[in-house]
Amino acid sequence: MFQKLKSYKRLSLVLLISFVFGCTQTEPDLLKVVKIKDGDTIVVLTKDNQMVTVRLAEIDCPEKSQAFGQAAKQFTSDLCFGKGVKLQGNEHDRYGRTIALVILENGTNVNYELVKNGYAWQYSQYSKNNAMLAGYQQQAQQQRLGLWRDTNPTPPWEFRKGERELKQTNNENTHMPRKHRSRKRKSRRDTIITGFDLQ
């Protein structure tokens, strides 16, 4: 009897440890969203207190200086600022940002929500064959949500291209050599005021 009781205690202890260990192992590593840079770029804090800049994959929000740029940033903030998220994807862009889908603890895909609500385009150059995302964009267009209230919204990649071209043109204009004109220098005699000139 004592032996059976002892083995039940051991079994209970092993099950309890397995349960606790199993729960911590299956829990996803959530990262806290600590900053919203713009609609499609956030900063997360890892468990070891490292800040990681994340560019939301497959979508492109209006730039902050574009129409609906600030609204997109606010939408992203309302959706995930201060919350725990997990990232799907670990590629990096040329700026060193992590490119990922951002998933809230409840399973909400932040990237897709932005497109669904008309605050982002599907970034077709980097989102090939994603029929679901294309469908969300088409639905937002039909319902005239967010940026689709404008009759002809400018995609951010075209806006950025225009900004780069304008900057390049301005740089070329400021670096153009000045034409040196030959100026006739006044002689010192011409600039001396005599008493007769004062009248």
Rank of each mutant, 00 (worst) to 15 (best):
1 M>D: 08
6 K>S: 14
7 S>G: 02
8 Y>P: 14
9 K>E: 13
9 K>P: 09
9 K>W: 13
9 K>F: 14
9 K>A: 09
11 L>C: 06
12 S>H: 03
12 S>F: 13
13 L>V: 09
14 V>M: 13
14 V>I: 15
14 V>R: 09
15 L>C: 14
15 L>Y: 02
16 L>W: 02
19 F>Y: 11
20 V>H: 09
20 V>F: 14
24 T>W: 11
29 D>R: 08
31 L>C: 03
32 K>Y: 03
36 I>R: 01
37 K>Y: 11
37 K>R: 08
38 D>W: 11
40 D>K: 06
40 D>P: 11
42 I>N: 01
42 I>L: 03
43 V>Q: 05
44 V>F: 03
45 L>A: 06
46 T>F: 08
47 K>P: 15
49 N>T: 07
50 Q>I: 13
50 Q>T: 10
50 Q>S: 11
56 L>F: 07
56 L>C: 06
57 A>W: 02
57 A>N: 09
59 I>E: 06
61 C>I: 01
62 P>R: 11
65 S>K: 15
65 S>G: 05
72 A>M: 04
73 K>T: 10
78 D>S: 13
79 L>P: 12
79 L>F: 07
80 C>W: 03
80 C>V: 03
81 F>C: 00
81 F>G: 00
83 K>G: 05
84 G>T: 00
85 V>L: 07
86 K>N: 02
89 G>C: 04
91 E>C: 00
96 G>H: 02
98 T>A: 01
100 A>T: 04
100 A>F: 09
101 L>I: 00
101 L>F: 12
105 E>I: 06
108 T>R: 07
109 N>S: 07
109 N>F: 04
111 N>A: 08
112 Y>S: 14
116 K>I: 02
117 N>C: 05
118 G>Q: 08
118 G>C: 04
120 A>H: 04
122 Q>N: 12
122 Q>E: 12
122 Q>V: 10
123 Y>W: 04
125 Q>V: 15
126 Y>D: 02
127 S>E: 07
129 N>W: 04
130 N>P: 00
131 A>P: 08
132 M>Q: 14
133 L>N: 07
135 G>H: 11
137 Q>L: 05
138 Q>R: 13
141 Q>I: 12
141 Q>Y: 04
143 Q>G: 01
145 L>R: 13
145 L>H: 03
145 L>M: 09
147 L>F: 04
149 R>T: 11
149 R>W: 02
151 T>Q: 06
151 T>D: 13
152 N>Q: 13
156 P>Y: 03
156 P>K: 01
157 W>Y: 07
159 F>S: 09
160 R>Q: 09
160 R>A: 09
162 G>W: 13
163 E>R: 15
164 R>N: 09
164 R>L: 15
166 L>M: 10
170 N>H: 12
170 N>K: 15
170 N>I: 09
171 N>G: 04
172 E>C: 05
173 N>E: 12
174 T>F: 07
177 P>A: 12
182 S>K: 14
182 S>T: 15
183 R>H: 12
184 K>D: 12
184 K>E: 10
185 R>N: 06
188 R>I: 01
189 R>E: 10
190 D>G: 01
191 T>V: 14
196 F>C: 14
197 D>G: 09
198 L>W: 14
198 L>C: 15
199 Q>H: 14
